[in-house]
Design a protein around this nucleic acid. Structure first.
Lengths: 223, 223
DNA sequence: GCCGGGTTTTTTGTATCCATTGTCCGGCGC
DNA sequence: GCGCCGGACAATGGATACAAAAAACCCGGC
């Protein structure tokens, strides 16, 4: 007998929102790409109303921009934007991790370890479109035990905005190995309960992704 | 001859969104109050389409909650939620203020001073519904010079979520005088360029509002 | 008192129509 | 040849009417 889960009863609007969010995060819709109401409603077989509501919601989340009478385009962040957002993440995530570690149970750590396993699998098999989601899930798993739902939700939104770019960074600078090592060390620090070291290390982990992206883009521009 | 400003051409959706946001922040719509599509569209003289899109956007901002097939209600935060959000604000705002102070020009300081003047006026005249907005504007004015638009936007959203509660705290605990003193001291610290002291003080300023709210609510519950 | 079923209300979603605005392209004048 | 002007066309913004589904409400019966 399986544990019966709450049957998922969704409205079309929320289903479309989730699907679009997923497709943006996975990179299926590239930066700056136009999202046309009509095309999307045809594709999903729904009317334009739920599509428009979904677009409004995604705009408020910062994933797309809606320009009056022009339509929706996938948000394109400048390097400065990404660095700024990573700075915020570094601040919030290091503090949240510090608060989370003393409360972590074995089950919490196991969940994080499992997610990390999945992430490594995706790294090896070049399953690029899932990197962002799995990276995000691993990070969030570390913070669960702090029981700060608002902070968690905020960090998740920041991941949604930045993951496309950190994924790009890992892909182009070919630093999958390093991502793996840093995550492993992070988990190890959590296991040992070294909250201050872990907080400092995750700060470094997040910011160094920004630095790597910056130097890569600078180098590209030189050519 | 006046400097010609960009003519504001907005869609109905964004106009309704702004109006509703304003009315929620001002306290016209209380916690937990239902917002009915039909009533709102009649009131504004528009169809339900722009109202629904506005509600979606406000939901993503966290000001309301939409429950499937039940409708939208103004978000009601628990004490824990407010404390958590204030903790985030303390972290972000103290760091942003620290980064902002070295870049502040006389014009920046003057703008903040003017806004503070307005706030004090509102305090004296018991113009409660504007306290939140003016408090928010004063804080944000201090951070402008840091030129971090993403952080600023994030902080603004956090203010939108918490201002109703800090306003309530000031009103019920009758600490208008204290709010005035703290803001004045804050501005003074900025003028003198004492960024570390200012950062520490704004942290205290934000968190102490939470503590005051907490002890007030605890005392209320005792009765 | 409360249980069950039907009615009503509200939200959700569709289809269709129109107005407004942005874009594109071809022609006209210089 | 080049720029710019204007109209055709496309997409968004918005209204209206209507249908379906879910929640809330009411009310009689036990």
């Amino acid at each position: 007998m399986t544990i019966l889960q709450p049957i998922k009863r969704q409205t079309l609007t929320s289903a479309v929102t989730e699907s679009l969010r997923q497709r943006i995060l996975s990179g299926e819709f590239a930066d700056g790409q136009q999202l046309r109401q009509e095309a999307l409603s045809n594709e999903y077989g729904v009317s334009r109303v739920p599509v428009r509501e979904a677009l409004r919601q995604l705009e408020a989340e910062g994933l797309i921009q809606i320009i009056d009478h022009k339509g929706a385009v996938v948000s394109k962040l400048s390097l400065e934007d990404v660095l700024e957002l990573l700075e915020i993440r570094a601040m919030l995530e290091s503090e949240l991790l510090r608060a989370s570690i003393p409360c972590q149970t074995d089950a919490d750590l196991q969940l994080a370890a499992d997610t990390l396993q999945e992430f490594d699998q995706a790294l090896k098999s070049n399953d690029v479109r899932h990197w962002g989601e799995l990276n995000s899930r691993f990070h969030l798993a570390l913070y669960r035990s702090a029981r700060r739902p608002n902070t968690l939700a905020l960090i998740e939104q920041l991941h949604n905005k930045t993951d496309r770019y950190t994924r790009m960074q890992i892909l182009f600078t070919r630093t999958m190995e390093r991502a793996h090592e840093e995550h492993t060390k992070l988990l190890e620090l959590c296991r040992s309960g070294a909250k201050d070291e872990a907080a400092e290390f995750i700060r470094f982990h997040i910011l160094s992704a920004g630095h790597a992206l910056e130097s890569y883009l600078k180098e590209q521009a030189a050519h």
